[in-house]
Nucleic acid binder design. Structure first.
Lengths: 108, 108
DNA sequence: TTATATTATCGTAATATTGCAATATATAAA
DNA sequence: TTTATATATTGCAATATTACGATAATATAA
């Protein structure tokens, strides 16, 4: 990110930015969409589903996890990842609030 | 972004990722929030409002504009920026759709 | 025209991201 | 215990982001 001055911004602003940043890559959007498309939360299949190597997928999963967008639980020798809906709620309600407030404005 | 393979993903996935990426910095969230807080769309005030230098603000505004999140129109010798609500609608409805589909799922 | 004000661009240093091969770790099965 | 399977970590090269000083570009005012 270069030298970012996160300390100059509010916790809320940093939280939203962190979640948005994690969403800011097509591979991670694709991972979320795949996680949504399967009823049971399979993990290794993501590697077969996307055109990226296993270490790269693992790295993207880590970033999604750090942002709180997904959860992982051990299932035998595999790991089952799934979407954390409360995190999705957070960012959704943020933009819903913003969009609803915008309707009352007149702009240039 | 490093060597990103955007060509391997769908237009929709790239579009959402591009918008999310633009939102993925606290300064840009702060800019959007400031643009919302003022009834009339002032521009130069953003520089006074945030703890960043003018070229840095200008760069962030450019990224928000490229992602379609804000619009700019010439107003005398100043430039008036304001939020593009249709772009906000796009990302909001994407997450609303995702969140509503999630409620029907059982997870690990 | 000249001066002032406002925003954009250039150049550059510091740091972050992306992707993958190689390797490590951990659990399950044989 | 050995082997196979699944995921994470390390190390590295290529590229992108962030921030800002200096400067350019543009429009208004004097």
């Amino acid at each position: 990110m270069g030298i970012s001055k996160t300390e100059h911004f509010s916790d809320s602003q940093n939280e939203i930015a962190t979640i948005a940043k994690a969403l800011g890559h097509p591979a991670r959007i694709a991972i979320l969409e795949y996680l949504m498309s399967v009823d049971s939360c399979i993990c290794g299949d993501i590697v077969n589903e996307l055109p990226l190597a296993q270490p790269t997928i693992s790295q993207h999963l880590k970033e999604l996890k750090n942002a709180g967008l997904i959860k992982g639980s051990i299932e035998g020798n595999a790991i089952c990842y799934c979407i954390n809906d409360s995190c999705l709620e957070t960012i959704m309600s943020y933009f819903m609030n913003m969009a609803s407030r915008l309707k009352k404005k007149t702009c240039c």
